[in-house]
């Protein structure tokens, strides 16, 4: 660590070195020289998030899916519905099974055959946020009370891990649920519930759920991760920034401005003012994400109309 400070102090060494070599040898000094100019290594301002795109319906075999890009981070979420008998305690509710995958292609840090340490933690965080935010009304996933309900298998695949994985994962989950279209189901003579394929007009069966094809989403949660380095708050850090900076705060706010979660696992001691600043940034980010999501829904409708 001391070598890095020396390098900045002297300045001479840096002058003679190639930028890329300097970046790898003295990552902290490299970052700090940028921060002194209030800019980040990828030319972003400190509080600026990376460009975000949402593409709905990326997987045609799933009932709902979305591909989200957050800079270079790419996250694919897909939902598959299956009919199951609901549990005895909640006969009028469906259920959601959340799984977050980090295959070896997503990052050089993930080795084949050995599951990534971060994956179960992000799975858990996603499930917590999804269930506690009140975005989903599980009663809507019920078909016949006590007899049949949907179980939504939600799988999130990290295709490219370049920082802020939880943010990208949550945005993709929300987008996949907005895209989700519930298939038509019918009850056979033997009392079994089965899904009816595409052409709804011609079927001879009586349909159970002709009206309810889309879920009504409640308050939608929007995340923002901030990396904290000394007095600077870096919104939406990249993998490079995350590897240098130890302290990070993830704020999830719902669309009515309430806190769904604040996760700060360890790192430096942070003042309340900084936490408040992060919440402020998350509010702004939430507004932007809401617009991006609405735009993507409109874009998809235009596509379908054509």
């Amino acid at each position: 660590m001391s070598a890095e400070t020396d390098a900045t102090a002297a300045g001479g060494l840096a002058g003679e070195m190639e930028v890329e070599a300097y970046r790898r040898l003295f990552p902290l000094a490299f970052l700090e020289r940028h921060l002194r100019e209030s800019v980040r290594p990828d030319a972003r301002r400190l509080a600026e998030a990376r460009p975000t795109t949402v593409a709905l319906g990326a997987v045609s075999s799933a009932h709902g899916s979305a591909l989200v890009r957050l800079g270079d981070t790419a996250m694919l979420a897909s939902i598959k519905l299956e009919v199951m008998s609901p549990s005895a305690e909640t006969p009028d509710q469906g259920s959601v099974a959340v799984e977050f995958h980090m295959p070896p292609i997503c990052s050089p840090l993930v080795r084949p055959g050995r599951p990534a340490e971060a994956a179960p933690v992000i799975s858990k965080a996603l499930e917590d946020v999804l269930m506690s935010s009140g975005m989903l009304n599980l009663k809507e996933l019920c078909l016949i009370s006590g007899k049949a309900s949907w179980v939504a298998y939600l799988d999130v695949y990290c295709l490219n891990a370049d920082g802020s994985l939880f943010d990208a994962a949550l945005i993709s989950v929300v987008a996949a649920f907005t895209h989700l279209e519930i298939p038509l189901v019918s009850v056979g003579d033997d009392g079994r519930v089965f899904t009816v394929g595409g052409n709804e007009g011609k079927t001879k069966y009586e349909l159970v759920n002709r009206e309810k094809r889309k879920l009504t989403l409640g308050d939608i949660p929007f995340p923002l991760t901030c990396a904290l380095h000394k007095d600077s708050i870096l919104a939406d850090p990249t993998a490079e920034e995350e590897s240098i900076i130890e302290t990070s705060v993830t704020v999830v706010l719902d669309s009515s401005g309430r806190l769904v979660s604040i996760q700060k696992p360890g790192g430096g001691v942070t003042s309340m003012a900084t936490i408040k600043a992060c919440i402020g940034l998350a509010k702004e980010r939430g507004q932007k994400l809401k617009e991006i999501l609405t735009d993507s829904v409109e874009a998809m409708e235009v596509d379908q109309a054509e």
């Binding site: 917590d128 309430r258 001691v269 942070t270 936490i275």
Partner: peptide, 24 residues
């Protein structure tokens, strides 16, 4: 200086901002 710092925060469930700072 350092008294009002926070090392770790893990929250679960929806709460208002005021609730959170009340907790703190």
């Amino acid at each position: 200086q350092s008294e009002r710092g926070l090392i770790t925060s893990i929250t679960h469930g929806v709460m208002s901002e005021d609730d959170y700072f009340n907790c703190i």
